[in-house]
Structures are given as structure tokens and as C-alpha cells.
Design a protein around this nucleic acid. Structure first.
Length: 477
RNA sequence: CGCGGAGUAGAGGAGCGGUACCUCGAGAGGCUCAUAACCUCUAGACGCCGGUUCGAGUCCGGCCUCCGCAACCA
């Protein structure tokens, strides 16, 4: 019997509406979750929202909105994705949940008890204009890009640091396992990063400067730095540390753990988070899968300000839930960046769904309704078509295979001409139609994790021998 | 010389030493069961410059362009 399967996305930061990139991430996770359930495994599928930190605080201030109202509002937007995209998530964790905050504090205590947390002075360049520390990206000629006339101040504050350097060796060992990161070149990246030497990182902020965060246990003057808090969600969602329902033991300790994240997350998910787990004597993550980014025409970053953003909700509105799932899984490269435009989406929708699947269902069922008189048997197999899925995670390739079956069925009907045969030899014609129908049934089965509703509709149509409504209506010109 | 990737027909992907493949789009035929759908055929490509080799998208060196990361933004 296969182990229980735990899968989680990263938690989107609630300083903007849900991004199409996150939609891709959660769809990839959803397919794997559904796929694993079909294999008979126990699955726990987690997502949620990351709600603390400077940026969110700033955003709420900007809108002069109560911070709690602000995060509630955006969290609702993320929640809506569940229905919009037909997600089969089992949990939705918010980093502002009380249980989560307690877990973050507990994890802190564990790391502290291990001797991996210490208070040190943090020295950084601070921009008075921005009222925040500057990162390398914010700097140009040693000045803040937004306030080039002001000289950045070197200021110091006392913060807690996590002794990442204590885990150099263990991390190298962890990363030496080739199963731990997909794709392989991201693993190389992680290995190189660790090899180049690890610095301890600050995991708290002075409350005076930023109060929107989880309180540091035993120190009223500090709050946790966002992602120490945020990363904890992967286990707090399972009920760690009390584990009253046993989910932590079942899924994290005894199960197989899988995280999905963006390609910019390697350092956080595969290094820092893993070191935190090591520190707390909790098993590390079995596998982290890093997807690419969605860009606009010419690899341009999608953003509201550029006016080229495409939101997941807009996609669903135009193409419907099932088609949106299909488009983002078939035409987005799982690990490389993908450019998306409305023109391309329209083209893919029409070619694959309207002319492809939708039309095949229509022509096949029209024939069978008329000439096939026996009941079709229920079918369950999905064959070896998924071989690539659990290994390479090439959702696009798996769908490509399914679409070649669709093409094959179209060809079969054209070449065998059951619609003609039936006029001379009805039995023989019906036989051919049945054959096509069986092929279509296999397609429906294979489609299950990708397009659950469509799969069901096709199955129902076949079993009832009744042509369904248009599955994918043609786009209006 | 900071680290790790990527550059293949109009578009998106495979191929990683031996006649360059698939999908969409375009053009030409065919069919009529079907959502003016479907089938067949055709045209069209390996970022640039060197090198290794009988033979290179495929290996090596250099260059150009793009993307993550470069540690307190997430």
C-alpha cells in the first residue's frame, strides 16, 4: 500500500489579487493530489495565505484600512480560487490563525532549545524615505532608487538570528539526494548556494519598527520575521505540535511530503525551511517541485501597472473552469517560463477543446445515439499513460499524449467511415462506433485529474448513450 | 571572470554525436458523422564566431540576448 501523500503550495502573500502564476502552482498541486487519490492514496492537500510582514502592513496603511480587514479581504480572494478552479484542497491555513501562530512560536522554541537562535546586532542600510531597510536591488550607486537624493543610513538593531551555518553539512547531505528537488538544475543551484557558504539570517524585527507579526516567545520587543512564521504553515496546517487528529504523524512523519513552489523559492523552501526542520528534529520535505513563471508577450513580466496582467478569474470567466485548468496545465511548461497572451489562449482553446475534444465527443455520441443499442460497460483503467507524471511532472506531456489519442479517434472515424458502413451493414457499423466510444471512454478516464467535471460529463454521456450539450462553446468573434 | 538555467520553422515544445520530430498557425486537396468541425498532403527552423570529429542543435572554447538567485522584499 502506498504511503499517505501530503502536498502543499506555497502561501501567496496577500498584498495583491491572486496571480495567474499562483493559479498554475495550485493547479499543478491539484492534479497531483487528484491523481494520488485515484491511485487509492490518502491525500492531504494544503494551501492558504501568508498575511504578516512589512509590505502588507504598508499596503494597509496606504489604503488607511484596518490591517485585519485588509488581510481578510485579500484572503477571501484567494479562497475564491477553490471554486473557480475546482480545487480539491483539504486545508486552508492562514498565518494569522491562532493555531498557526502558536505553532510558529513552538517551532521557534524548539530551534532555540537546540541553540540555533541567538540575538545579534543586525546592521543594514536604511532608507528614511521608504522607512525600511534597503536590499541590493533597491540600490543604485549606493543610493535608494526611490530616494536618490537621500543618503541611506547605516543603522543597527538587535534581532534574533537563526544559525543557518550550523546546518551546512546536513543540508549538503540532504541535497545530495537527487529526489529532493525537481527539476534537477534547481537542485544544482541549491547545492552551489550551500557550498558557497551560509550566513545566519535574521528571523525577527523590532516591534517598534514593525508590529504586524507573530510575537517572539519570551521577548515582548520583537516579532518574527515573516517567513520564519510563514514556512511553519506546512506543519501547522497538519495540527503540529499537539497533533490531536494525528495528521502530522500520518502525513508528515509517516507519509510522503511534497511541496510546490516558484523557481525563485529555492533558498527558502529547500534550504532555510529544511534547516529549520532539522533544528527542530522534524523530518525534512521529501520533494520540492519548482515551477517556472508566467510572463506576458516577449517574456515581459505581468503586472497590473503595465496593464498586461491576466487574472485567473478573467480566464475562468472567458473559458470556464475546466478549460482554464486545461489551458494552464497543457500549455504552460511545468518548469520553464511561459509567455501567455489572450490571442494564444484563444487559439489553444479553439484548437484543442472546441475542435478537438468537444467536437470528438459530439460526433461520436451522435453516431452512437443512433446506431449503438447495447449498454456500455463502466471502465476504470487509465493505463500507463501517467508514467511520466509522478517522475518528471510533465503535465504538458501527459496531456499531449491524451490529445494524440483524441487525434487518433478522429482519424479512426474518418478512415473507417462508420457513418457510411452503417448504411450497408448496420451491425458492422455499430461495431466500429462502439470501438470509437471505448476509445473516448479511455480518454475521459485519463482526463480525470486534469478536467474532473468534463471527464464525468463524457462518462455519463457514454453510459446513458446520449449526446451532451456542447462541452466547449465556440468563442464569439 | 559571483551561482544556476534558457536561446530549434510565424508560435509553443521534443531531440543532446549519425538523413531534424510533434502540436498550433499558414497554403492546397478530400470527406460529410460532428461545434464551418474532421482527415491527407505541402512550405517553413537549430542566437553568433571558432574548434574537436568521417560526421555537431547535440561535445569544447569565446561572444550576444533572456530568466531566477546574489541573503534580512516575499
Amino acid at each position: 500500500m502506498s504511503k499517505p501523500f501530503y502536498i502543499t503550495t506555497t502561501l501567496p502573500y496577500v498584498n495583491a489579487d491572486p496571480h495567474i502564476g499562483f493559479a498554475v502552482e495550485i493547479l499543478q498541486a491539484d492534479v497531483l493530489a487528484r491523481f494520488s487519490r485515484l491511485e487509492g492514496r490518502d491525500v492531504f492537500f494544503n494551501t492558504g495565505t501568508d498575511e504578516h510582514g512589512q509590505k502588507i502592513w504598508d499596503k494597509a496603511q496606504e489604503n488607511s484600512e484596518d490591517i485585519q480587514d485588509y488581510v481578510n479581504r485579500y484572503t477571501e480572494e484567494v479562497r475564491k480560487l477553490k471554486d473557480s478552479l475546482s480545487l480539491s484542497t483539504d486545508a486552508f491555513v492562514r498565518t494569522t490563525d491562532e493555531a498557526h501562530q502558536k505553532a510558529a512560536q513552538e517551532l521557534w522554541k524548539k530551534c532555540d532549545a537546540k541553540g540555533d537562535i541567538e540575538k545579534k546586532k543586525y546592521k543594514g542600510l536604511y532608507c528614511v524615505g521608504c522607512e525600511k531597510y534597503l536590499t541590493e536591488k533597491d540600490l543604485e550607486d549606493g543610493k535608494c532608487v526611490f530616494h536618490p537624493t537621500q543618503e541611506p543610513q547605516v543603522i543597527e538593531e538587535e534581532n534574533y538570528f537563526f544559525k543557518l551555518s550550523n546546518y551546512q553539512k546536513q543540508l549538503e547531505e540532504y541535497l545530495s539526494n537527487e529526489n529532493v528537488i525537481i527539476p534537477e538544475h534547481r537542485r544544482q543551484e541549491a547545492i552551489e548556494f550551500v557550498k558557497s557558504g551560509l550566513e545566519d539570517f535574521s528571523i525577527s524585527r523590532e516591534k517598534e519598527r514593525l508590529s504586524w507579526g507573530v510575537h517572539v516567545p519570551g521577548d515582548d520587543t520583537q516579532v518574527m520575521y515573516v517567513w520564519f512564521d510563514a514556512l511553519t504553515n506546512y506543519i501547522s496546517t497538519l495540527g503540529w505540535p499537539e497533533d490531536k487528529e494525528g495528521n502530522f504523524k500520518k502525513f508528515w512523519e509517516d507519509g510522503e511530503t511534497f511541496q510546490v513552489a516558484g523557481k525563485d523559492q529555492v533558498r527558502f523552501q529547500s534550504i532555510m525551511w529544511q534547516a529549520m526542520l532539522m533544528s527542530a528534529d522534524i523530518p525534512t520535505t521529501d520533494k520540492v517541485f519548482y515551477h517556472g513563471f508566467i510572463n506576458s508577450e516577449g517574456g515581459q513580466r505581468m503586472s497590473k501597472s503595465l496593464g498586461n496582467a491576466i487574472s485567473p478569474f478573467e480566464l475562468v470567466e472567458k473559458y470556464g473552469t475546466e478549460a482554464t485548468r486545461f489551458l494552464l496545465l497543457k500549455h504552460v511548461h511545468p518548469v520553464e517560463d511561459t509567455d501567455i497572451t489572450w490571442e494564444r489562449l484563444d487559439e489553444w482553446y479553439t484548437a484543442d477543446l472546441v475542435n478537438g475534444l468537444g467536437n470528438l465527443v459530439a460526433r461520436t455520441l451522435t453516431l452512437s445515439e443512433k446506431y449503438v443499442h447495447e449498454q456500455m460497460q463502466k471502465q476504470n483503467s487509465s493505463g500507463g499513460m501517467y508514467d511520466g507524471m509522478g517522475k518528471t511532472f510533465r503535465f504538458d506531456v501527459v496531456l499531449e499524449h491524451i490529445w494524440s489519442l483524441i487525434q487518433g479517434l478522429d482519424r479512426f472515424i474518418t478512415e473507417e467511415e462508420p457513418f457510411k458502413v452503417v448504411k450497408e451493414d448496420e451491425a458492422r457499423g455499430a461495431e466500429l462506433i462502439r470501438e470509437a466510444l471505448e476509445g473516448l471512454y479511455s480518454v475521459a478516464n485519463l482526463l480525470k485529474p486534469f478536467m474532473p467535471d468534463t471527464s464525468e460529463k463524457i462518462e455519463k454521456a457514454i453510459l446513458e448513450n446520449k449526446k451532451p450539450e456542447n462541452l466547449f462553446p465556440r468563442l464569439e468573434k
